[in-house]
């Protein structure tokens, strides 16, 4: 698994993808930091992260679109699947590599926190919870993107479908508010990733939300493994 992880991480920085991801993320979060925190003289870091969370729709597809689809297109999956490595370690290695790039980018945004702490008063515990929630939400999105990437050989298709899926997740709360059937509304709200994320941006470390997010990622990793496995058996 370590070998897969290392190779995948390397390839983010051999190709422009990793830099495009980091660049666009830092650019957008920089704008939100400048307007939301500095110019409006606010030290609420959680609000900034919550405002910037729409960026997942745009940057997560960059991170995940080629993870599995490119292996299939270039037939390098023949090497991986005929080597003595398990499918789980391939999928998990790739997932962790994408999460690492995301984490590295978040670490760079630590500059904002340093600036805030120099000119205002912030609670580091709260900022940590903000970051944790943001990171875990991102990982859930990456798991979704990874799953979608196994469904196609085309990076573009994977990117667009991932965009659509994250858009749906993002809009879930708004969809819930217009559903009149009570039962469905409650279930969807419980499932909504972003309503759980808002706990974290308010500085609340909610254990059930943490477990929900970890489970959410795990389920999509499982689906990824299952769909690769299914294709090996397919008769289509």
């Amino acid at each position: 698994m370590l070998a897969i992880y290392r190779r995948e991480l390397q390839s983010y920085f051999f190709s422009p993808l990793g830099y495009v991801f980091m660049g666009s993320f830092l650019f957008v979060s920089g704008i939100f930091f400048a307007f939301g925190n500095i110019m409006s003289v606010s030290s609420s870091f959680g609000t900034m992260l919550s405002n910037v969370s729409f960026i997942f729709m745009l940057v997560v597809p960059i991170l995940t679109m080629r993870l599995m689809s490119d292996e299939r297109r270039t037939k390098t999956d023949q090497l991986l699947l005929t080597s003595p490595v398990s499918l789980w370690s391939i999928v998990v290695g790739k997932f962790f590599a994408a999460c690492t790039v995301f984490l590295l980018t978040l670490v760079l945004t630590g500059v904002y926190v340093i600036i805030l702490s120099a000119y205002g008063s912030i609670s580091f515990g709260e900022v940590f919870v903000n970051y944790l929630g943001f990171f875990m939400t991102g990982c859930c999105m990456i798991a979704v993107g990874l799953f979608i990437s196994t469904q196609t050989e085309s990076q573009v298709t994977a990117a667009i479908a991932t965009f659509g899926a994250i858009l749906l997740i993002y809009l879930m709360d708004s969809i819930v508010s217009v559903i009149s059937i009570n039962f469905i509304g409650v279930v969807l709200e419980w499932l909504s990733l972003f309503s759980r994320f808002s706990d974290f941006t308010n500085g609340i470390l909610n254990i059930s939300s943490t477990i929900y997010m970890i489970t959410f990622s795990a389920v999509f990793l499982f689906l990824t493994v299952a769909s690769v496995e299914k294709r090996r058996w397919s008769e289509g």
Partner: peptide, 8 residues
């Protein structure tokens, strides 16, 4: 088709 990673 040899399974090669072109970027390595």
């Amino acid at each position: 088709q040899p399974p090669l990673y072109m970027d390595m």
